[in-house]
Every structure is written in C-alpha cells, then in structure tokens.
Amino acid sequence: MRRLPLTRLRDRYGASPLHLLLVLCSFALALYAGLKLLKGNPIAVALWFVGAALIHDLVLLPLYTLADRALQHLFPTPDSRTPQAGAGRVNYVRIPALVSLLLLVVWYPLILRRVPGYRVTTGLSADSFLGHWLLITAALFAGSGLCLLAGTVRRARGRKPPVHKR
C-alpha cells in the first residue's frame, strides 16, 4: 500500500520521482546562474543560448548533409554485393573535406579575417591564417589522394590471379 502513491506518480509523470527531483534540482541551479547570465542583455543572451542549441541541428547538419548527398551523387557507392569495385571511394573526398571544414568552423574569425583588432592587440600579423588553412587543406587532400592511390594499387595486386598456388 505504501508504494501506491509513488507508482501513481510514475504513471502520471512518466518517470520515477528521483527523475523529477534531479531535474528540478538542476533547473533551480540553472535558474540561479541563468538570472545572472541574462542580466544586462537578456534578449541577446537568450537568443545566443537558444541559437547555440539549434545552430548545429537546424543549420550545420542540413548543410553538411546536403553537401554530403551531393558528393555521394558524384561518387555513388556501388551495390553492397560487389564491395570490391571501389567501395567507399567517396570517403577519400569526404574525410579531408570534413576535416578542412572543421578547421574553418573552429578558427573562422582568424581565417576569414573577422577580427579587426587582432594586429594592434597582439602585435602579430593577421595575414597568415587564410594561407595556412589553404595549405593544410591542400595537404589533407594530397594525403587522401596518396591513400587512394595506395588502396588502388593494393586492390589491383590482390585481384591478380595468384601465381604460386600451394
């Protein structure tokens, strides 16, 4: 009989009471810190916070998914029954492109020269970042090209009929 109210809570609430306690505890802390966070410029900060939550899921993800679909259209993955015929060729473009874009996403203010005060503040030149990024990107694609070449050679050798058969 003693467990009955808890069971009823679980049925109506949808989870255990411990769930409710933990969530409420975290919300109280979030509210305590959140009120301080929002002080000063509440609307802009709230927009940044919610925007941060959605920027990947609603902006970046659709963009890179579409780009990836386009890439796969150019290099279609062969039927799974014939996996040898260049399976995963698309990855030789996909992976270096992804790493290059990742570098751009992380360091874009410097790469795209969005920081007007950089030079006067640090005494350093702001001109090198774009060039570095392009060279790294070139190196990534070159490295991937070498991997593709090595893979092709290896597959070609593997496909040769074995000469010395035991």
Binding site: L29, A30, Y32, A33, A44, L47, P109, V115, Y118
Partner: peptide, 24 residues
C-alpha cells in the same frame, strides 16, 4: 580569437553559462 561579438563580458557569459550547463 579576440572576436568579441558575443552579447556581454566574456567572463560573465562564460562563467554563468557554465553553471547553467553543468546542472543539465
């Protein structure tokens, strides 16, 4: 990257934001 486009002092946003985050 000294790209101060966020809406307020970095210290305020980053410290209080961390506390909002850590409970969740």
């Amino acid at each position: 990257q000294l790209h101060y486009v966020f809406p307020g002092s970095f210290y305020t946003l980053h410290l209080y934001g961390a506390w909002v985050f850590i409970g969740a």
